[in-house]
Design a protein around this nucleic acid. Structure first.
Length: 550
RNA sequence: GCGCCCGUAGCUCAGCUGGAUAGAGCGUUGGCCUCCGAAGCCAAAGGCCGCAGGUUCGACUCCUGCCGGGCGCACCA
């Protein structure tokens, strides 16, 4: 059971015993000042109105009636009515052994009961290579999946390939032109074509593989032929870069194969029609999204008979995603946020609760080098590519840097800082703490010192304030992970790890681990092992490695 | 014009769903390696939390209105 749950139970028992009204929710916080205890709650102040008594009076009653708990050394009432809890050092010492015993399971939910979540991210168009903002979305999405899974949620990660519609056609025609150019034929890119160098390379590959299009192929067949080839190759390349980044998707969905070919958009339109949620106007078919909070109604079938993109996406969400999950989370770029209300409207119209569809906006990334904006390469018609980023700064530094920021806050990514292998770079600071700990154990082995058995370590010698603080910090970890998963905010884990590393480095500087006092040495080795283990668990949630040495 | 996001130290950003005296990194200044990894540690300086109201025991946090920045407002995707 989590510590705050135990405390809440104790609080409720005290309230009952004192004849006070109970509390549905109890917020525990970790005070900034040590004098305010290890945990504090404002429960007495919250109850003041319902109980018709002064907060401090209620707090006093709670203290008097609080059941004795191993966890708690003493309770204090402070300020306007805060209830401050001081943990028992003896209990903390014992808890350290439990952290060690739990190992990689420490911080994971005990019971797997989190429902099924469909988590879509990156989903870059199959019209070119992945760029830096895709790397950010990949880091956030993958870490979210890890976080949610650690809390017992069944997560399916998904990359949705938009291999249909106008841009598919534009891509196909662009490749068609490039192939003709390879053959020495005069051909120019269409108005909305893709000018990137990569299509020239793709045309070369196409030729080299001896591919060809039937001479008698119709326009329609040419588009299909070149479009399929281009999408297949580009998606392959995207998948490869993501794999190098440590991100693998459970599902790669295809707009064409999984939605359009299944006739799902028509089914959704029929559904709308049968419920009176759509109407004809100006030769087009409109979905009455204003009935569900959108600011204007939306076209779902154009006057030329084609489906609009949102119509297809609504079908995808309703049938495919909700067909396999209770909850949908989409990570979108800021340019798509105007699109959210209509999707919400559609899903509510189709009977899904509003909270079952969540959208996280992953903001843009500005690339800097030593504080100066990195010039986009106009010649290539491209930005900074994700594989270039990985090559330059590496996977761990890239991921950690992205996860040091809230996803909805625009990010300045300084290549020079991320590349630098110094303290400027938070990822090395955290990894260094782990490597240092491994190094201590390596040193111990060299000196013929056996590591203590976690379950039987006497942790009582850990009496230094810095040691008590470290243990308490480690005890926060499960709640931290839970909170980060609940809020869908992986950056909390990154920050917390940085704090833990800082506390460890400071303690390490002032306290020797390997020494003559064997009891103390074993206790400190246990502490080191626990810190190292938690750092490893935390980094794993971020998809960042915990190196043995650096 | 309407909608969404963002204004916190010189810079980049946290602030745990409303708590007690505002946090970190970088940068600046000054210290620390005969001792388990100096990719480290210790210390100093640095703030009208954009502005003004409101809600309450209590606001960086919630509400309203301004100011400033970003992004959206298609029968594009």
């Amino acid at each position: 059971m989590r510590l705050t749950e135990t405390l809440t139970d104790g609080l409720r028992a005290a309230l009952a015993k004192a004849g006070l009204p109970t509390l549905d929710e109890c917020a525990w916080e970790i005070p900034r000042q040590a004098e305010h205890g290890d945990y504090a709650t404002n429960a007495a102040m919250v109850l003041a109105r319902a109980a018709k008594r002064a907060p401090r009076q209620i707090a006093d009653l709670i203290v008097k009636n609080f059941p004795p708990l191993d966890e708690v050394e003493r309770l204090e009432v402070a300020g306007p009515g805060f209830l401050n809890v001081f943990l028992s050092p003896a209990w903390c010492a014992g808890a350290l052994r439990e952290i060690l015993a739990a190992g990689s399971a420490y911080g994971r939910a005990e019971s797997p009961a989190g429902g099924r979540v469909r988590l879509e991210f990156v989903s870059a168009n199959p019209t070119g290579p992945l760029v830096i903002v895709n790397a950010r979305a990949a880091a956030v999405g993958d870490s979210l999946a890890r976080l949610l899974r650690s809390q017992g949620v069944q997560v399916t990660t998904e990359f949705y390939v938009n291999d249909a519609g106008n841009q598919f056609e534009a891509l196909a025609r662009s490749l068609d032109v490039r192939v003709r150019q390879e053959l020495g034929e005069p051909a120019v890119l269409p108005e909305n074509g893709y000018p990137g160098e990569y299509l020239v390379d793709l045309a070369k590959a196409y030729r080299a593989e001896g591919c060809r299009v039937a001479p008698a192929a119709s326009e329609r067949e040419r588009v299909e032929h070149f479009g399929r080839y281009a999408v297949t190759r580009i998606v392959e390349a995207q998948r490869r870069v993501l794999r190098d980044y440590g991100v693998e998707f459970d599902v790669w969905s295809s707009e064409q194969r999984d939605v359009r070919d299944q006739g799902l958009p028509e089914k959704v339109l029929a559904e709308f029609a049968s419920r009176g949620l759509s109407y004809d106007a100006d030769g087009a078919l409109w979905f009455r999204s204003t009935a569900f909070g959108d600011d204007k109604d939306r076209v779902v079938r154009k006057s030329n008979g084609e489906l609009t993109y949102p119509a297809v996406d609504m079908a995808f969400h309703h049938y495919v995603k909700f067909g396999a999950a209770d909850r949908i989370i989409d990570l979108l770029g800021p340019d798509h946020h105007g699109y959210v209300p209509r999707m919400k409207a559609a899903l509510q119209a189709l009977g899904h609760p509003a909270e079952a569809y969540q959208v996280l906006i992953v903001q843009l990334v500005t690339l800097l080098r030593d504080g100066q904006p990195v010039r986009m390469s106009k010649r290539r018609g491209e930005f900074v590519l994700m594989d270039e980023l990985l090559e330059e700064v590496g996977r761990d530094a890239a991921r950690f840097t992205f996860l040091m920021r809230r996803h909805d806050s625009p990010l300045d990514f300084d290549l020079a800082v991320a590349t630098r292998q110094t303290s400027d770079n938070p990822v090395y600071y955290v990894q260094y703490a782990h490597a240092r700990i491994r190094s201590i154990f390596g040193q111990a082995v060299e000196q013929g010192i056996a590591a203590p058995v976690p379950a039987s370590v006497d942790t009582r010698p850990l009496v230094e304030p810095a040691e008590q603080a470290l243990i308490k910090r480690l005890l926060e970890y499960p709640e931290l992970v839970r909170g980060a998963a609940l809020a869908l905010e992986p950056h909390r884990v990154a920050y917390w790890l940085h704090e833990l590393a800082a506390e460890f480095h400071a303690w390490y500087k002032h306290h020797r681990v390997i020494q003559d006092d064997v009891r103390l040495m074993h206790a400190r080795m246990a502490l080191c092992a626990a810190v190292g283990g938690v750092i490893r668990n935390g980094l794993d949630l971020l998809g960042v490695s915990a190196p043995e040495s650096m």
